[in-house]
């Protein structure tokens, strides 16, 4: 009993193996590494796509996305931003959702959403460049 007061961990939490999962550092670093990449990729995309696509023509979209540098940049932007997005939403879910079942469901949904969006978006860029 006296030990639980010293460690700030509840006896029930200790019995149920609650507490640090030991993977927080990797999460923390990944969020920051992706943020550094996005600090370059996101402004690049907004300005260059804005300038290229402001006429609203379909041909401009194709011209922009079939330029090799742009295609690679957009694939990077999609992959890195969706990963960053997934990590950020994980943090929000863990902060606000207390019921374990709901937390697990939302985190699964979040992971599936990121992977599905990434697959669809990158596949689309590849189709525009190599498909019929």
């Amino acid at each position: 009993m006296s030990q639980s007061q010293r460690t700030m961990r509840t006896p029930l939490g200790r019995v149920r193996h609650h507490g640090a999962a030991g993977e927080g550092t990797g999460h923390f670093i990944a969020l920051r590494v992706t943020s550094i990449a996005l600090a370059i990729l996101a402004p690049w995309f907004v300005v260059s796509a804005g300038l290229s696509l402001r006429d609203g023509e379909y041909a401009s979209v194709i011209d922009f996305l079939t330029e090799p540098v742009n295609a690679v940049g957009v694939v990077f932007l999609v992959a890195v931003s969706l990963y960053h997005m997934k990590l950020g939403m994980d943090e929000i879910i863990v902060d606000y959702i207390r019921r374990p079942a709901a937390k697990l469901m939302l985190m699964l949904l979040n992971a599936f959403a990121a992977w599905a969006l990434g697959a669809a978006a990158i596949f689309s860029v590849l189709v525009l460049n190599f498909g019929a």
Binding site: Y58, V61, I62, L65, V74, V78, S81, L82, M85, G88, M89, A113, L117, G118, A120, A121, F123, S124, V125, V127, L128, G131
Partner: peptide, 17 residues
């Protein structure tokens, strides 16, 4: 908000293809 925007951006790429 950017989560929603990322869904829209992916949708935009799919529609472009």
């Amino acid at each position: 908000a950017l989560y929603a925007a990322a869904i829209g951006f992916s949708f935009w790429l799919v529609v472009a293809a």
